[in-house]
Design a protein around this nucleic acid. Structure first.
Lengths: 160, 160
DNA sequence: GACTCTCATGTAATCTTATAACATCTCACA
DNA sequence: TGTGAGATGTTATAAGATTACATGAGAGTC
């Protein structure tokens, strides 16, 4: 399993890489990476935290793009269904995928203090959930795995 | 790990047992198991599926108890914070705990066809999520683990 | 028994999140 | 130059959740 999200890094590069990668994938999969969709992904990429749909909508509005909720929700739907972003159910908010591309089963670690979110990958059939499903004959199609707690930085600052 | 929820069982007994157990625990922990709170737990126990807060509110209303959202949300808050019920984040809905009592880290399996929900127990520090957290130094306080898919029954009926 | 403090309840108003429905636009391709 | 599929714009509204404030009920004290 691989993790990412709480370390520092070249963020401008991180963003342009992700956009380029999404762009390439849309081309190869015949998807339309329209301006609104691209812009929403950029907005999400600017922060390694989850943004609410209305937060995104506000930014779009400020830029003169559509100003009604469906504009944001539709772009987010596109990004989520194609694996470029994820919804954090616990927060009713969205975050750019840090492992763009293939189908995957993400797990998130959400810092309750600074709101940073890190994404890791899991194998749904493995582990405790996989075992429980096997035990009762449940067929997993999709998983939501989210942990709340303190990221390394916030543990230092507030060691309670 | 232990699972429950898709099997058939004596449901009336299941309900009265859970209520009795909750009652006893409230007594021993100095919590007030008031009529509204008890009634909401009963409503939840009547189904092994998750109910939305407004669905619960509707039933309370029909019985002449409080009719405003906070009535339902407050009872649910009580039940959730004391481990008698859980919130299913994926569904924005609530379900009675089938392992009432102690502090625990539940995992849920949600059938997308019949909406049945089964609860299993996990050990957060173990498994893939625990490993990912350890890798990056994240301190887990709470987890949300939910799988969507098909329960054994619905796999038979709709084998696609 | 009256006092009072704490916690629970009742209710109105409001906020946040999300979707339905429908008109319009765009662009690849026939 | 159609035409049809998919994307966008906009209005309205549904669904989920909380704030704020008034009222009530019960345990413990004087």
């Amino acid at each position: 399993m691989e993790s990412l999200g709480f370390e520092t890094h070249d963020h401008a590069l991180c963003i342009s890489d992700c956009i380029a990668s999404a762009d390439a994938q849309c081309k190869s999969r015949g998807l339309k990476f329209t301006p609104v969709r691209k812009r929403v992904l950029e907005i999400l990429l600017q922060e390694h935290r989850a943004l609410g749909a209305y937060e995104i909508l506000d930014r779009l509005r400020a830029e003169g793009r559509g100003s009604q909720p469906p504009v944001a929700y539709r772009a987010l739907d596109f990004l989520v269904s194609n694996g470029f972003a994820h919804k954090i159910e616990r927060l009713n908010a969205f975050i750019a995928c840090t492992h763009p591309g293939e189908d995957h089963a993400p797990a998130f670690m959400i810092c309750r203090q600074c709101s940073a979110v890190a994404e890791a990958q899991t194998v749904p059939t493995k582990g405790q959930l996989g075992q429980a499903a096997r035990d009762i004959g449940f067929q997993i199609e999709r998983t939501v795995v989210e942990a709340e707690g303190l990221c390394p930085k916030c543990q230092e600052h507030a060691p309670l």
